[in-house]
Amino acid sequence: MSLFSDNIRSLRLKKKVSQEKVAESLLITRSRYTKYEDGTSEAPYEILKKIAHYFHISIDLLLSVDVRKIPTNHLLQLENNRLLLPITVDANGENFIEIVTQKAKAGYLNGYGDPEYIENLQQISLPFLGPGKHRGFPVEGDSMPPHEDGSIIIGRYIDKLGEVMDGKTYIIITKSEGMVYKRLNKNKRNTLVLESDNHFYPAYEVKASDILEIWEYECNIGRTDKKQEQSETESMKELLLELKREVMEIKNRA
């Protein structure tokens, strides 16, 4: 038997329904469905989609993760069964926040959809954040001041691209760039512009099809207490104000 066969059998038993009932819902015969559970036949793509929707679970988990090891109440279902995220809670029922450390960052692109990988990440609890699914990500480099290299950005999961607000900052997980923290703007319907607050780094575009996850900035955890340096824009404003004051003084003396 395959992992897929074990999964659909386990899900059916948890749902407490017969093979006949599942087959009726899929619009196929019971004998055909039985072959999928026995592993003697592989489900074609169209049937695979129907099975995923019937059990409310993503296709990638059906094929690649042993769902028997995952309590169903620890999963967060997203739109169109695209992905299921594990949710773990403390003794008071508060959601734990998984922290993607620098060491774990390298494997996140492959493990973000694997509940076993996620549940092995370090966890903290921040009850003041309120509702939503949160996760912590490391900051690298100097592209997003005042957040420094080594800080942790706590983000809230964004399910739909339409929820992204121009000018706000987000952790973006993409197929091509991996994990980045940037300020976003919607350039086109299916394209986002990623901008750094440090203008030394040029902005660039990312297509919606390349995006795996988006997490909206909620708070950060840092280790530095040094005073933030004044930006060039603020310095120019102060210089112009000083020149304006001097001009006014000259006029008043005339």
Rank of each mutant, 00 (worst) to 15 (best):
Y170M: 03
I99Y: 06
L13Y: 06
S18D: 04
G178Q: 10
S176Q: 13
H74S: 11
K226W: 03
N73R: 10
I154M: 03
D197N: 13
R82I: 05
K69S: 06
M1K: 13
N185I: 06
S235P: 08
P146S: 13
N185D: 06
P71K: 04
L212V: 03
A104L: 01
P146K: 08
S64G: 01
L26W: 01
E20F: 00
D142Y: 03
P131Q: 07
M248P: 00
V65T: 10
E163L: 12
K69C: 09
S235F: 14
E119C: 15
F200I: 12
L63T: 02
H56R: 14
S31V: 07
Y170Q: 04
T174R: 08
D159E: 14
N252L: 14
P146Y: 07
G178E: 04
S125M: 04
L212P: 03
I59F: 09
I51W: 02
A91E: 15
D210N: 04
H53V: 11
E232D: 14
I51M: 07
E205F: 01
P131S: 13
F55L: 08
I97G: 08
F4P: 04
E242T: 14
T174A: 11
W215G: 02
R68L: 01
V193T: 14
T34Y: 07
S143M: 03
N110P: 00
P202F: 10
S176E: 15
H134P: 02
D159T: 09
G130R: 01
N187D: 09
T29N: 08
L61R: 07
E205M: 09
Q228K: 12
F55I: 04
M144G: 04
H74E: 14
E20P: 03
E116W: 07
E232A: 15
N81D: 14
L109C: 01
Y112H: 15
R32T: 10
T72F: 13
L11P: 00
K175P: 03
D142K: 05
I99Q: 03
L75N: 08
L241W: 10
I211W: 00
I8D: 04
I97S: 01
I124L: 08
M165A: 05
S151M: 11
E98T: 11
G136Y: 03
S209T: 00
G111D: 08
G155S: 04
M1S: 12
K69H: 08
Q123N: 08
Y201D: 02
N95Q: 11
G162W: 06
V65R: 01
L109Y: 03
V193M: 13
N110M: 13
I59M: 13
D142T: 08
Y117I: 01
L63S: 01
R156M: 07
L61Q: 14
V206N: 03
D225C: 15
K16C: 09
L27T: 00
T34V: 13
R9L: 13
V100L: 11
G39E: 09
K21D: 02
L84H: 12
D225K: 14
I171R: 09
L121T: 05
E98G: 14
R9E: 11
L240R: 14
L27D: 02
P71I: 01
I8T: 09
D159G: 04
F128Q: 07
I152T: 11
R9Q: 10
I118R: 06
E229A: 15
N198W: 02
N81F: 11
Y36E: 00
N92H: 02
N73T: 05
I70F: 05
I51N: 05
G111S: 11
L240M: 15
I221H: 05
